[in-house]
Amino acid sequence: MAAIRKAGFRLSKIERQEALVGVVFILPFLILYVIFNFLPILQGFWISLHNWDVIGTNVRFVGLRNYEILFSKDKLFWSSLEHTLFFALLAGPGLIVTGLALALMLNQRVRGIGIFRTIFYMPNILSVTVVGLVFARVFAPGERGFVNAVLSSIGLEPIAWFLDEANAMPTIAITKVWWSVGFNMLIFLAGLQEISQSLYDAAKVDGGGRWSLFRHITLPGLRRPMLFVIVLQLIASVQVFPLIDVLTGGGPAGSTRPLVMYLFERSFDYWQLGYGSAIAFVMFVFLFSISIIQLWFFSRGEGN
């Protein structure tokens, strides 16, 4: 605003009226956003400064004590954060690479391509409970599970997919990729269709190979969808909870407990809503910072 004034920029009367109309149009959303999003965030922070039972009893101001315990003593907080980041590391690249690969594969002008696009997107519309129940069967222990039955039929030993701490999180990540990759595929597909065919034609005339076209035209052309997918994926991965709850319940022995599940346990099972709110606020700051860094990183790249 100061820069505009400095440049001697002034809105005319009509422009001011138009701006006012714009403000009036977004006001209902703004009011609802403040009431249902912004104020609860502030209230969450206020609760995190208290001992606060989930039913609203036993409220006592404790200042930053919850944060102090969280950072200095709570081993489960750190292990849950570790599990969450591990999950994000496993599922994130899988979702992006597979989504992009599917989009490239389905970005063809051939008869019936719409059917394939629908088929690959379909798992995304299933509820988490359905996905959980199906994959609990697919990766069931012993020889009753579908994958283990296949392994046994070729003479391999069955694997404890969800009941072994080394296998459980990768198996959850595989399930997540199968379930959610359709969404990323759709975003990349839309991005691919925005890239002008003339760029490819020109590059081919100059002797560009397939890899060169992909590297110098497709990938830069997908910068915005890529940013969108990465930010969204990171947020979704850090917030993972229902899928793990249905598949492993955080087990075995807490080895797949993500941060949101830990937050839920402390808040609702242990009644420590104040402590749970502290975890939520730390998560909020973490995600906000990462998202800002990502946006800055990509916008910097765009400028270059």
């Binding site: 609990a136 222990p141 012993g142 009753r144 069955p158 404890a160 969800f162 009941l163 072994d164």
Partner: peptide
């Protein structure tokens, strides 16, 4: 059966 080869439903 070993704990990691069985779940409740099975």
């Amino acid at each position: 059966r070993p704990y990691n080869e069985i779940n409740g439903a099975i």
